[in-house]
Simulated scan of single mutants.
Amino acid sequence: MGRLLDRYIQRRAVERWRQALRGAPTAPEPQLRQQRDDARKLRTHLQMLIHEADSRLARPRIGSTQFPKPLGTDWCWRPDLWRGPLARPGVASAARKAQMDRQVTLFHDCSLAEIAMRQTRNSRDKDLAAYGMTVEVFGFSGSFLSLSVELPYEAAQGLTKQHLMRVDTLIEAEQPLEIFARLNIQHGPNAEQVLRKLDLSASTCSVDFDLAHLPLNESRIEKIWLDLIFENPQMNRVSLRDLTFCRHHRADL
Rank of each mutant, 00 (worst) to 15 (best):
G188R: 11
L128G: 07
P60F: 07
Q157K: 07
S141W: 03
E52S: 13
P60Q: 06
A53V: 15
M165S: 04
V167C: 03
A191N: 06
M1Q: 10
P233M: 11
M165L: 11
F67R: 00
L253S: 15
L183A: 11
H163C: 11
H51Q: 09
T26C: 07
R102M: 08
C246A: 15
P85F: 00
R237A: 15
L128Q: 08
S219E: 12
G158L: 05
Q31H: 14
G84C: 04
A113M: 08
A181V: 02
L86Y: 02
A27R: 03
R237P: 12
R182T: 15
L243S: 03
P25V: 02
L151M: 12
W77Y: 11
D6M: 04
Q157P: 10
M100Q: 08
I221W: 14
P79C: 01
V194Y: 01
P70A: 09
D210Y: 06
S219V: 14
R3W: 14
F209N: 03
V238A: 04
G158S: 05
L200V: 12
A24G: 05
F245P: 02
R59Q: 15
R241D: 04
E114D: 12
V135M: 12
G158P: 13
L170V: 11
Q162H: 12
L195K: 14
P25N: 00
P68S: 09
K41Q: 15
E136I: 04
I224S: 05
D80A: 12
L164N: 00
C110F: 04
T26R: 15
T120G: 03
T244L: 05
R182I: 10
S93G: 12
V91T: 07
K41M: 10
T169P: 12
R33A: 13
A98N: 02
M48I: 11
P215S: 00
A173S: 13
A156H: 06
L49A: 15
Q162R: 13
L214W: 10
A130N: 13
L81T: 07
L228Q: 00
H249Q: 06
K126H: 09
I9R: 12
S55T: 03
A129D: 08
R59V: 03
G188A: 01
Y8Q: 07
M100I: 03
D168N: 01
Q175G: 00
P233G: 14
L240T: 05
G72T: 04
P68N: 07
D125T: 14
P233A: 10
E178A: 11
T160R: 04
F107T: 01
I224V: 04
R124E: 15
R182E: 14
F107W: 08
Q193S: 05
S123H: 09
R241L: 06
L57D: 15
E172Q: 15
R118G: 13
Y8D: 11
Q186W: 00
L81R: 10
F180V: 14
D125N: 13
H213A: 09
R124W: 02
